[in-house]
Design a protein around this nucleic acid. Structure first.
Length: 152
DNA sequence: GCCAACGTTGGC
DNA sequence: GCCAACGTTGGC
């Protein structure tokens, strides 16, 4: 089992939106970065644990715990010509983009970037690195343990 | 809105 | 395969 951090913009799909969905589960559509896609396609398994992270918003940070509940399958938005995520090079036979399904386990207090940065134990987290833009990043088991046991 | 960082595109 | 131009991300 692996641990991940997945970013989402709360103005598009925030944790409260997902909590209001059926089974508190969302298909993680819209990833258009190959490295992030490959994490979903090649490494994510049902049961993997996820930090739910709000980005591009007034208070960026971890806001919940979630888990992977369905393995990667083609992202529906790539086939939708009206979607900004449409990809004309993607076909049903050769989909280019995939997503997993993610279920929110619980909403937590907000652990903001400043707070995360304040702990030396978390200094190597990808999301804290300068210039980091990757929307899905692996989380070290020790980092998961520290955050869930010491900060929450 | 700014801008640093970095990914993608496309001409050569 | 190089790399300049361009586009996007995301904190501030």
């Amino acid at each position: 089992m692996r641990y991940w951090l997945m970013k989402t913009e709360p103005s598009v799909v925030g944790i409260d939106h997902v909590l209001a969905m059926k089974n508190q589960t969302v298909d993680w559509w819209g990833v258009r970065n190959y490295q992030a896609r490959n994490f979903m396609r090649d490494q994510m398994q049902v049961g993997d644990k996820v930090f739910f992270y709000h980005s591009s918003c007034p208070e960026p940070g971890i806001i919940g715990l979630a888990e992977v509940v369905k393995k990667a399958y083609p992202d529906r938005t790539q086939f939708d010509p009206s979607s900004p995520y449409s990809d004309p090079k993607a076909t049903a036979e050769n989909p280019r983009w995939v997503n997993v399904d993610v279920r929110v386990v619980k909403k937590t207090r907000l652990i903001g970037l400043d707070e995360l940065r304040a702990h030396p134990e978390l200094a190597n987290m990808r999301v804290l690195q300068r210039g980091n833009r990757l929307s899905i990043t692996p989380v070290d088991p020790a980092e998961w343990k520290f955050i869930t046991e010491k900060l929450l």
